[in-house]
Amino acid sequence: MLTTTFSMAQLYPAVATAVRAPSLHNSQPWRFRLADGAIELRLDPDRMLDACDPTMWAARISCGAALFNLRLALAVAGTPARVQLRPEPTDPALMARLVPLAPRAATPTESRLHAAIPRRYSNRLPFRPDPVPAAARHRLIEAARAEGGWLELVIGSTAVGAVAEIAMSANRVLDRDPAYQAEIARWTRHGPASDGVPAAAGGPVAEPHDLLPQRPFGDWHRAPGRDFETEPLVAVLGAAGNTVGDQLTAGQALQRVLLTVTDAGLAASMLSQPIEVPQAREQLRLALGRFGSPQMVIRIGYGQPGQPTPRRDPADVIDTVLEET
């Protein structure tokens, strides 16, 4: 029996914050509900990407990121939560259950990261050449560690080139799959929408001389021969393993890193191609020499102004309340 319970009045604003998490192609594969005074986060079976995410790895990463936002929203509202990951083994769609803890004031870090949520978005435009300061780099590494993940900053042109080649090779594999390309096209939006990636936010069309791969969301071209970026800061985020629990942990670590990026005045975009192709993921792990499993490649730098991609209304992702006390 819970001594305190969450209510619908607490759930709705928390979910409005949670849905600002990133997801592959902005598919938003999550649902939320109250059950016996606890908040449940669930995979949405109607939002799975059959071609781009057949193992549901990306959907679980996204749910982990939404879980981190949910935790921040509840903490800033004065009621932090204890998180139970995958509390019902017989219910594989149930990703997490959040049980209220004793009320307390939010920490300064929680408040800063929460304030960064509406300003965080994937910036697919070229970044300025200004280097990311050492202090900011340290903050990003610590952000991943605080959530049980790890972040490897790829330093040096040789190392960056090796990771870039792995990413490009994976992208070529994916490009040869017609179903994969068709699914990206279905999630590209050319008008008002509440999900998917607006073409205007997709960045420029990829060029053969680009160092890193680019999704074909955008439809505008750069000046001929102009490099996208020659020396980007590339980071690889990982977890101890690649179980469902590891993926949820990695999603929380990813979102904490991305919000720390935003709080530091930086921008980021994600490259999941080398994670989506199993052989490329293993090559990446070996290249890094790290224990554990890479879960995301992140490009970080100083970006041009942009805007977040659209999200569904919280009412569209909240299921009927099972029991409210």
Results as ranks from 00 to 15, higher is better:
L153A: 05
D46T: 15
F68E: 08
D50V: 15
Q273N: 06
H138C: 01
Q28M: 15
V234A: 10
A223T: 07
N26M: 13
G191L: 08
L85K: 06
E323R: 15
A201F: 10
V321W: 00
R311Y: 09
Q283C: 12
V83G: 02
R189M: 14
L43H: 07
A250R: 02
V277S: 05
T107R: 15
R290M: 08
D175S: 14
T55Q: 10
M8S: 15
R176D: 15
R31A: 11
A185V: 00
V173L: 00
R120I: 04
W30Q: 06
E282A: 11
L43M: 14
L211T: 08
H25R: 07
E152Q: 14
R86H: 03
T109F: 01
H190V: 03
A21C: 04
R139S: 15
L212K: 04
V197M: 05
A75R: 01
N171L: 01
R31G: 02
R60D: 06
R86D: 04
A201E: 13
F217V: 05
H25I: 01
L266Y: 06
L41Q: 03
A250N: 06
P224K: 00
P118H: 07
F6K: 00
P178K: 06
A102S: 14
L113G: 03
R186H: 13
L2F: 06
S272F: 02
E324K: 05
D50W: 14
T109M: 13
A144Y: 08
Q84C: 12
E152T: 15
G301M: 09
A136W: 00
W57Y: 06
S23N: 09
G191E: 13
A199S: 15
D195V: 10
I300N: 01
A16V: 03
P126N: 04
P208S: 05
R256T: 03
A77T: 09
R124G: 12
R71P: 03
D313G: 03
A267L: 03
V297I: 08
G251R: 00
L2K: 12
G306M: 04
G149V: 04
A146C: 08
A14P: 06
S62A: 15
G196S: 11
G78S: 10
E183F: 05
E142H: 10
R42Q: 10
R124F: 09
A134I: 13
Q283L: 14
A116T: 09
V76S: 01
S7D: 02
A35Q: 11
